[in-house]
């Protein structure tokens, strides 16, 4: 008796999760949806067709977003992996660990506002490089802390063993440490990709509207009250991660707790 509600509730949860995806797709197919009509005046692929034309610049934004997020994810994962080794094998690793958490305290957008002076001085304001650098700065602490669990005593033993078996420093990395860290590297890449892919506040400040990633586009369309294009950019924003999640989900949480 008591158990009967469970399947219903679960189905409800599933619908709840699928709802935003469906809604965004449907909204992106509409136009001329006046209140209080229940159905729009147009329903079809008109909006989607504009991705291919230059109107709205969505394709461009998509490409820029991919380039930025890939760059951030690659640089962050690699640097995070190597630098976390130094940090977590350091005699004072506890102190360094606390320091590594500090960047989390400042909201990225406030951080960007406080840093913009330096970005202007360095010529990193309003261009793609600047956005990549800024996003790298907020994704880096994540990667650093993410790899902390990898550099344990056992991994040190593996590295030492490899050395006594005659392995050089390079061989220790290529033959032992990197292969053993493979799944963690993948997860870190994926997560830092998402951090960058989803980032809005910091990008809007460092990019000052000149670097139009997809999140920036969504906001622009919302401001213009062009909700159909807004939904269309939302679709472009959420479906690539869905695909990645499908292939990657078993890795996502590994070693996070």
């Amino acid at each position: 008796m008591k158990r009967y509600w469970k399947p219903f509730f679960l189905s409800f949860l599933v619908l709840l999760v699928l709802f935003p995806f469906t809604y965004m797709v449907l909204l992106s197919l509409m136009s001329g949806w006046q209140f209080p009509d229940f159905l729009p005046s147009y329903f079809g692929f008109k909006n989607w067709a504009t991705i291919m034309t230059s109107e709205g610049g969505l394709l461009q934004s998509f490409v820029i977003s991919v380039i930025i997020s890939l760059s951030v994810a690659i640089v962050t994962t690699i640097s995070g992996f190597f630098i976390s080794r130094v940090v977590y094998y350091h005699p004072k690793s506890k102190v360094l660990n606390v320091l590594a958490y500090f960047p989390y305290i400042l909201a990225p957008v406030v951080f960007a506002a406080c840093l913009s002076f330096f970005f202007i001085k360095l010529g990193l304001f309003g261009n793609v490089t600047g956005v990549v650098v800024a996003q790298f700065l907020i994704a880096f602490p994540y990667a650093l802390i993410f790899f902390s669990s990898f550099w344990n005593q056992k991994m040190k033993s593996y590295a030492d063993l490899t050395a006594t078996l005659g392995g050089s420093r390079l061989q220790t990395y290529t033959k032992v440490l990197l292969p053993m860290a493979k799944s963690m590297l993948l997860v870190c890449f994926f997560q830092t990709f998402l951090i960058s892919w989803f980032e809005y506040g910091l990008t809007s400040i460092i990019g000052i509207g000149k670097v139009q990633t997809l999140t920036i586009k969504v906001f622009l369309f919302i401001k213009e009250a062009n909700y159909y294009y807004g939904a269309l950019s939302c679709c472009l924003l959420i479906f690539p991660p869905v695909v990645l999640l499908y292939f990657n989900k078993r890795y996502v949480f590994k070693k996070m707790v």
Binding site: V17, L18, P20, F21, M24, L194, W197, F198, Y200, T215, V218, F219, C234, L237, I238, F239, P241, V242, L245, K249, V252
Partner: peptide
């Protein structure tokens, strides 16, 4: 896992 694919803006 799907909700993880939705950013704050969306």
């Amino acid at each position: 896992y799907l909700p993880l694919a939705i950013p704050g803006v969306v």
